[in-house]
Computed example of a mutant assay.
Amino acid sequence: MEKKITNDSKNKNRFEGNYFEWLKEELTGWDRFPWWLFGTGVGFQLAILLLDKITWISIVSFIGIFFGMWCTVAMGAGGYNKKGERVSSHAINGLMGSVSVIAYVIVNLSAGHWWSVIDQLCFFFLIDVELLLTWRTWGQGNNNIIKSLSKIGWFVVIVVILIAWFGLYHLGIILNDSNPVWDALALSIGGVASWLCFRRYSTTYTLWLISDCVNVVLWLTALQKGYSQASLPMLAMTVFYLATAIMGKFNWRPSKVG
């Protein structure tokens, strides 16, 4: 079915098909590289699943990683819409992103990463929920304006992250977080990145790059200490997310200084 666009009372484009028709539209027009990246990531994760002992946590982690990789690739995938206009993102979060969040929450709870659970919930409420509510007009009007942070803005972001890290680390010790140093830093950076994405700042991908590096260390530590069976697939997933953050960094360019 063809995409039907009308102008509402505020003169914004609005998708008039159903949600699954919208998803189909968002899955078309991608550049080739994002699809190659997604296919490579899924193939690697499938190999990890099949070559190791299959348990309920490995299945849950695979499901979460599959949908998580799909959503993050889409968020940073450049391409073209049906009008032939260049776009910087194809949003398929919302329902599909919610599946990955549920799986990641279960995996992090089983690993004792309390702050990573909250990090996932921040992503869910700031990105997935908004998209579930605004998918008909996503990428139109103000939703398509990407801003950049000023030097003062960067200073505030860094201060907020450092203060949050300090507080969460000490609280994590009290709550017996399995890896309080890196888990606290993951939430401090990831939570701010999700907020900036919600506010349409290109800076979010710079922070997600750093956050992905932190998560690599977090899950590498989990693999070395052996306290989570999901540590290897989650480690591979964070490396994949690092690649998608690099891709998004190039595609999400400021269209307006904010």
Rank of each mutant, 00 (worst) to 15 (best):
K151I: 10
V160S: 07
P180R: 00
L223N: 09
D52Q: 14
A77W: 11
I163S: 05
I48T: 00
S202W: 02
D8E: 13
D128C: 13
E2Y: 09
G64T: 02
K249R: 10
I5K: 01
S228R: 00
S148F: 13
I5M: 12
I63Y: 01
S88L: 09
L223Q: 15
S100T: 08
Q229S: 12
V87D: 05
W35A: 15
I57M: 15
V257A: 15
V160M: 10
A164V: 15
L242Y: 04
G172E: 03
G112A: 06
L232C: 07
L27Y: 03
D52P: 05
F166V: 11
V181K: 03
R253T: 07
K147Q: 10
G167R: 07
F166N: 14
G112I: 06
W138N: 12
I152C: 01
K225M: 14
W252L: 05
G17A: 08
G17W: 07
L168P: 01
D8H: 09
S9Q: 06
L168S: 07
G167K: 01
M1I: 15
V214W: 02
L223H: 06
I161T: 06
E130Q: 14
T203S: 05
V216W: 05
S231P: 10
E16A: 10
I54M: 09
W208K: 04
P254E: 07
H113Y: 00
Y169P: 00
L133I: 13
L109Q: 05
D52S: 12
K225S: 06
G141Y: 04
N18H: 13
P254K: 03
W35F: 13
D119N: 14
D119C: 15
I102P: 07
Q140S: 15
G153W: 08
F33W: 06
S188N: 00
C213G: 11
